[in-house]
């Protein structure tokens, strides 16, 4: 049946569908800037709002802390997953890497509230630590998955074994072969992790709460202001999406310039 149609028109249809998706994505992204144009001066003035500034600083600090912890814990976990074969590895990897990325953040916040909330021996709810924990759970897997994929590629080349035949112990192989050959992939994973941490809402909302100047971050600020569609909410939206976009652009730079 497909042979009956003129392929020229079919290709045009494909291009139109592709174009519609592009227009939808780009319009959504650009609309915040278009909306800001109408009240440009007010939006600019909102950037200086003390509450927004503190929320931005808390967002940035918690996202950087998350990315730092993701490197410290995520790279060794990636090494374990890529180098060791053991029973239940697939299940463990799914639980540690795939599940958190698809987990409803609000449910994650609920679990943390029960596990580390007011009724638990370790009360971390409504603190900066709670922000980092909530972000870490869903963002760290990016570092693990990107790094593990690269470590597996290196392992397949056998370079690690050649290094060991030359006298390097596994620890030396990790730092002289795996890490330098994976810097770009770790960097790409960290970019995505940071970007995801910047935008995380559900877990932070429940577990860290929305205490201005203490645990309020840009996404939770937007969530509380969105109903009234304030200029401040728009300014905060622009801040968080622009920061995340810049992080993703740097991620593309890392992966595309891969040698």
């Amino acid at each position: 049946m497909i042979q009956k149609f003129n392929s020229k028109y079919l290709i045009i249809i494909l291009y139109v569908l592709a174009g519609l998706l592009l227009v939808f994505s780009i319009t959504t992204f650009l609309y915040q800037y278009i909306a800001a144009l109408g009240s440009f001066k007010k939006v600019i003035a909102s950037f200086g709002n003390n509450r927004i500034l503190t929320a931005l600083i808390l967002s940035l600090l918690s996202a950087f802390a998350t990315a730092f912890l993701a490197i410290i814990f995520g790279v060794p976990l990636a090494y374990l997953f890529s180098m060791k074969e053991f029973k239940g590895k697939l299940l463990l990897e799914t639980l540690a890497v795939d599940v958190p990325q698809t987990f409803p953040p609000i449910a994650e916040g609920m679990i943390f509230l029960l596990m580390l909330g007011p009724n638990s021996p370790v009360h971390l709810a409504y603190t900066f630590a709670a922000l980092v924990i909530a972000k870490f759970f869903i963002s760290a897997p990016f570092v693990v998955s990107f790094t593990a994929r690269r470590f597996r590629e290196i392992r397949q080349t056998g370079m690690n074994l050649t290094a060991r035949s030359l006298g390097a112990n596994p620890f030396q192989v990790f730092f002289t072969i795996f890490i330098p050959l994976s810097l770009k992939d770790i960097g790409a994973g960290v970019s995505l992790c940071w970007s995801r941490a910047m935008g995380e809402l559900g877990g932070s909302l429940l577990f860290a709460g929305v205490i201005p100047h203490q645990t309020e971050i840009i996404p939770t600020f937007i969530a509380t202001q969105a109903k009234t569609l304030t200029i401040e909410a728009l300014a905060a939206t622009i801040l968080v999406t622009t920061a995340s976009t810049l992080a993703l652009v740097s991620f593309k730079h890392f992966t595309l310039s891969k040698t």
Partner: peptide
Amino acid sequence: LPIEARNIGYLPQDYGLFPH
């Protein structure tokens, strides 16, 4: 003995050179 303690020279088929 672990690989690194054997002192065996090894040339893999693709030479296994470290690209970095």
